[in-house]
């Protein structure tokens, strides 16, 4: 199986706090990888290193074989220009915990913004694509609404459509349902469930264990900046091997 993302010896510190400690992880293409773990374990930071919203202190990340953020210069790595990094980011989608829709733009404008600006797509084409994607997340009716007129669940579905509009190779979800009222979680998970069937590579940092069990192809458990255990979700949730995993799962059940 080919790895879409390869993380190798990744380290990240915020001041004296060593958030990621020598992380090694391969993320398979066309699979759903779920990352769970207590808050502060480094899950989100690892995700944000993949599209370089965070700059690692050391280690390398490749996406589809391409080194992220650097180019080789002899034996060393030279950091890429912000323009080149932007081009690399355009190939990965990201969905944020707090949605981060553009509040001054309508739903449709949110979705077509990057295809037009970054991909230089014609407006008519971008709008046609956007309407199809809004149909996919069930929000065709809201195309001309502003984000402030939507519920949290609707905003997150727009954010997913916005990420998909760039036709990314993989899509990173950073706790997509953590900021939602409980009754709105289901509609977002449903959209993600359908997305998983399209064969796009998904990395999902989540607290939704049932989603990880039902939809995930692989489960990663992180604690204290390290990957403690990985495995097939159903098997790992039923019979965790590591004591740290057992303890975490027993607390959230």
């Amino acid at each position: 199986m080919q790895a879409m993302v390869q993380i190798s010896r990744l380290n990240k510190s915020f001041g004296a706090h060593h958030v990621l400690q020598d992380i090694n992880l391969d993320i398979e293409a066309e699979k759903v990888t779920c990352v769970i773990g207590p808050s502060g374990s480094g899950k989100s930071t690892m995700l944000r290193c993949i599209n370089r919203l965070e700059t690692p202190n050391s280690g390398t990340i490749t996406v589809d074989g391409e080194l992220i953020g650097y180019e080789r210069e002899g034996a060393n790595l030279r950091e890429l220009s912000t323009r080149r990094i932007a081009q690399q980011r355009a190939r990965m989608g990201m969905v944020f915990q707090r949605f981060n829709l553009f509040p001054h733009l309508t739903v449709l404008q949110n979705v077509i913004e990057a295809p037009i600006q970054v991909r230089k797509m014609a407006k008519a084409q971008a709008e046609a694509d956007a309407m199809r994607l809004l149909g996919q997340v069930g929000l065709t009716q809201k195309a001309s609404a502003y984000p402030s007129e939507l519920s949290g669940g609707q905003m997150q579905r727009v954010a997913i459509a916005r990420a998909l509009a760039m036709k990314p190779q993989l899509i990173l979800f950073d706790e997509p349902t953590s900021a939602l009222d409980p009754e709105l979680v289901g509609e977002v998970l449903e959209v993600m469930r359908e997305l998983a069937t399209t064969g796009i590579t998904m990395v999902v940092v989540t607290h939704e264990i049932s989603f990880a069990r039902d939809i995930g192809d692989r489960l990663v458990f992180m604690a204290d900046g390290q990957i403690v255990e990985t495995g097939e979700p159903k098997e790992m949730l039923a019979n965790p091997i590591q004591a740290r995993t057992k303890e975490f799962l027993s607390r959230i059940k």
Binding site: L53, T82, R83, Q88, A90, R91, M92, F96, N100, A159
Partner: peptide, 11 residues
Amino acid sequence: QSEAGRSLGMS
């Protein structure tokens, strides 16, 4: 807002 824009590949 800048994180969302960056994640979409905007310069």
